[in-house]
């Protein structure tokens, strides 16, 4: 009897170990496919960009001359590069907090048990599904001198806040260098708020209901509950949303490209770092210089992400 049990146990144990190994192998095999693609087309491409950035690199001829940090020096001495960096940073500093606040606000609202909850979730998410190029084209029409936005301002008449700021009633929002970037900011805050809402919504579900019940027993109102429970417990959510939002903002390209073309019109107001890189390749066919700017952007994003980790603590834990 004992021997039999032992035999079965060891037998079972062996098969379990085998099963484990087989399972692990299958797991690695499945992971291997995307991993190899990731290593070649992401990590490999990034490393290759580092190589290109120290050469005078012809797109057809390959490396022509080793320049060391020459391309980087050229970039740092280029006024349009700095203008592009300035635009990108300004864009990020304004867009990220607005996106996060709006995303959180929408998430808290649609997280309530209200009638038509599903409809509102879908409606708020909708702009994120539409193609950014299509939305930008629409936006260009709205913001034209005789577009919908200015017509709306005319209806408001003396109540129009922009008129009070001295902005003409037929102001070309995207065509004037003082408002072009701000207009694209507004566009992007609107279109991406739905995505941010979705992330926050997922994060909101992780907060245990008992916490709220306990707070209610202690006499906390909804306002207190939000600021003392929801907001601090959303910390992993904040980190995730902030990281996604910052990276997306630093890489702003498509809306600026559709609205201002490759040269970042008007007056470089829509010149962003990625647009600057694209221009170096498409117009000047200068791969080394473009790669150098890409490397600088890489370090900028990495630095900002590290600072964020400091601010929000370690990597988020989802439970």
């Amino acid at each position: 009897m004992t021997t039999r049990t032992e035999a079965t146990a060891s037998e079972r144990g062996g098969s379990l170990r085998q099963q484990h190994v087989a399972e692990a192998l299958a797991g690695y095999a499945f992971v291997a496919i995307p991993m190899v693609l990731f290593l070649i087309f992401n990590v490999g491409a990034i490393l290759f960009a580092f190589v290109i950035s120290v050469f005078d690199w012809g797109i057809r001829a390959g490396p022509r001359e080793f320049l060391g940090f020459g391309n980087f020096e050229d970039a740092l001495a280029n006024p349009v590069f700095w203008k592009s960096v300035g635009n990108t940073v300004r864009y990020t500093v304004i867009v990220v907090p607005c996106q996060m606040a709006l995303g959180l606000f929408l998430a808290v609202i649609v997280n309530q048990k209200i009638r038509g909850q599903t409809f509102f979730r879908a409606a708020f998410y909708f702009p994120a599904i539409a193609s950014s190029a299509a939305i930008t084209v629409l936006f260009i029409y709205i913001m034209q001198p005789e577009g919908l936005f200015n017509s709306f301002r005319n209806v408001l008449g003396p109540l129009d806040p922009f008129g009070a700021l001295g902005i003409a009633e037929n102001h070309p929002w995207l065509g004037h260098s003082t408002t072009a970037l701000e207009s694209v900011m507004a566009l992007n805050i609107w279109t991406t708020s739905g995505t941010m809402m979705l992330f926050y919504l997922a994060s909101l579900q992780t907060i245990p209901r008992e916490t709220y019940e306990a707070a209610e027993m202690d006499g906390a109102n909804a306002w207190d509950a939000f600021w003392r429970i929801t907001f601090p417990l959303l910390r992993p959510g904040h980190f995730f949303v902030a990281t996604i939002s910052v990276i997306g903002s630093l890489q702003i390209f498509d809306q600026a490209f559709v609205a201002g073309g490759l040269s970042g019109e008007p007056n470089n107001a829509l010149s962003t770092m990625v647009l600057f890189i694209a221009r170096q390749v498409r117009e000047n066919v200068d791969m080394g210089f473009a790669a150098a700017v890409g490397v600088l952007l890489f370090f900028l994003i990495m630095a900002v992400t590290l600072v964020q980790r400091r601010l929000f603590g370690a990597a988020p834990t989802w439970y």
Partner: peptide, 21 residues
């Protein structure tokens, strides 16, 4: 070669001039 930068520099400066800056 590289004339794209020249064109873009001119266009941007001209836009600024038209805007009065």
């Amino acid at each position: 070669s590289g004339f794209g930068d020249v064109e873009s520099a001119f266009n941007n400066a001209m836009t600024a001039a038209v805007e009065g800056t």
